[in-house]
Computed example of a mutant assay.
Amino acid sequence: MKIALLSILLVSSCATWKQKDFEKEINKPTEEAQPKVETTKAEEKILEKFEVVPVEEARPEAKAQVTTKTPEKKTNPTSTKKVEKSAPVKVEAKPVATKAVTKAKPLPKDYPPELITVNEKAKKVWDLYKPNHFVDEKVYLDIHYLGMTVGKIMVMNKGKKIINDKEVWHLHARFKSAPFYSNIYELDDTVDTYVTTEKFLSVRYSLIQRETKQDVDDLQLHDRDQFKTFWFYHQKRSDGKVKDKKEEKPIPYFSIDPFSVLFFYQGLPLKDGDVYEIPLINKGKILILRSVVEGREKLETEKGKKNAIRVHATTKYTGETLKSGDLYFWFSDDPHRTLLKAQAKIKIGSVTADIVDK
């Protein structure tokens, strides 16, 4: 989320943008990042291992993991209230009996001791997590800076896929700057991430940035069998310069990427005063996101007043994408835990993302 909030600061002006125009753009077919650097045979095997497979094309034993039935809802026989057919359906993760309990694999001999400590703390957070995700639910947010709407974001859960014979959630986001800025600086970013339905661990993260000054393809594969992340990065600047990079680094077993953390919050208790230290993986580096549930409040939104839970997240890693500083998130205080608002504090004011009607 902060990736998009910070990048929009490259432009500033006043413009209007209708939601229907944004929907036309985000519904256009998009690709996911692929390595554009030379790969070894070992890396090719890793890429093959993390290939995304639609459920209908998966092997029978992998296909069996996907829950095809939706949970039955209790109804009041005297009620005449109709249920909207377009409402998103909550689908619980259903582990396969033969894979529900798996033995932890031994750590590599050169595994950093500090990551063992990080993992032990993170496991306590993951023990609190319970699947709470709604397939096909879309959230639209307007990006504001200095009182102006300068871009839009769409976030959604695209359902289940199969990677390496494991069931995963496919989480997706599109970000675009307003059309008015196209002659100044255009941003069109796509994020796709996949996390295991059983434990909500990041498996594959893809970021594509198509901007005026650069094109970026960023692919990150997180191998829990090897306790490693594999990062493939390609940047082509408007001046013709190309930057290729790839890295292989150790990671904590319990960790996720910077985007899927928004969905991870949905499955946490979010009780007032709760503190969660969540390891995020980005470009081979580990960021600890310290999240504090500050309390409940009424939030004014375009969709009316909402009961909201405010979470204050603090980052400590300074890198190219995630900067040190404060982040605030507001989630609906109901079973959906819908993202209502996000805010990033910066040197001059703040950038906010507010939920809007479709």
Rank of each mutant, 00 (worst) to 15 (best):
K90S: 06
T190W: 03
R310M: 08
I256R: 04
V52M: 10
I143N: 07
K245L: 13
V275C: 07
E43A: 04
A58W: 00
K345T: 10
K74N: 07
F263S: 13
I288R: 10
A58G: 07
K305N: 09
P252E: 11
D333L: 09
V242A: 08
E84L: 12
R337C: 04
V195K: 06
I256W: 00
N183D: 07
K305S: 11
L207D: 06
I346M: 03
E38H: 03
M148I: 02
E57Y: 01
K283W: 02
N157W: 01
E300R: 13
R210Q: 14
D165E: 14
I256Q: 03
I46F: 03
A308P: 04
V139H: 05
L339N: 04
P77Y: 04
K2R: 15
A353C: 10
F50K: 10
Q19Y: 03
W330C: 11
T78D: 12
K158M: 10
S206R: 09
N183S: 13
L10V: 01
E247W: 00
P35H: 11
K345R: 11
V139A: 12
E44P: 02
E43Q: 12
F232H: 09
R59H: 08
F331W: 03
D165K: 03
I309E: 01
T68Y: 08
T149I: 11
K105M: 08
E211Q: 15
L141Y: 05
G349L: 09
V37W: 02
E302Y: 01
R174G: 01
I163S: 03
D189Q: 09
P131V: 05
E38C: 07
G151N: 10
V139C: 09
K316H: 11
E320N: 12
C14N: 11
T39W: 01
Y111C: 06
V55L: 05
T78N: 12
W126T: 01
S202N: 04
L262E: 05
D218W: 07
L6Q: 14
H172S: 14
V96Q: 14
K45Q: 13
A104Q: 13
L270T: 05
E302P: 03
P77L: 12
K28S: 12
V91K: 13
A62P: 01
F263Y: 15
Y317A: 10
K166I: 06
V261S: 08
K94G: 00
E92W: 00
A122S: 04
A122W: 00
H222N: 15
L299F: 07
A178K: 11
A313W: 00
F264E: 02
V91D: 01
G295I: 10
Y145H: 15
S79F: 02
K18I: 06
N27M: 11
R204C: 06
E56S: 13
D357V: 03
T197V: 08
V101I: 12
K298G: 02
V216G: 07
G159Q: 13
V356A: 04
Y145T: 07
V11S: 08
F227W: 12
T315C: 06
D110W: 00
